[in-house]
């Protein structure tokens, strides 16, 4: 039994669990445009950047996705709570509109659920 290796290993596990599963704060606030949509621009490259979007309840939301890589993994974005999806051709802007939402949080993911984003709806 090597205490050093054991303790370092367990600490590392703790850090990993906290980092990936711990409570996450913040997120980028969507801006309201002239037509009343709350707009958020999301870069798609091995995940969504930003991946946490804060919006207000009761107002429609417009996402503008731009996929800047060609990997096959994130060629499609899915909003499971809305039965909505969009293909994201590399290098093209794709607009997805969502209806006004109630407070809470809604996920969006790639087709396989490996890349994830969250919409946080606040009052």
């Amino acid at each position: 039994m090597n205490w050093f290796v054991t303790v370092v290993g367990l600490l590392l596990i703790g850090v990993i669990a906290w980092y990936f599963w711990g409570p996450k704060k913040g997120g980028s606030l969507a801006e309201t445009n002239a037509s009343g949509f709350q707009e958020a621009k999301i870069l798609v490259k091995n995940g969504y950047n930003p991946s946490r979007i804060v919006v207000q309840s009761g107002k429609p939301v417009r996402f503008e996705f731009t996929r800047i890589e060609t990997g096959a993994c994130d060629g499609m974005v899915i909003f499971p709570g809305f039965e909505k999806s969009a293909t994201l051709p590399a290098g093209e802007k794709v607009i997805v509109d969502l209806p006004p939402m109630k407070t809470g949080s809604y996920d969006f993911t790639c087709q396989m659920g490996m890349f994830r984003g969250k919409i946080i709806v606040k009052n």
Partner: peptide, 8 residues
């Protein structure tokens, strides 16, 4: 890219 978003 994943780490930045706290995902693996």
């Amino acid at each position: 890219e994943g780490l930045k978003q706290r995902s693996a």
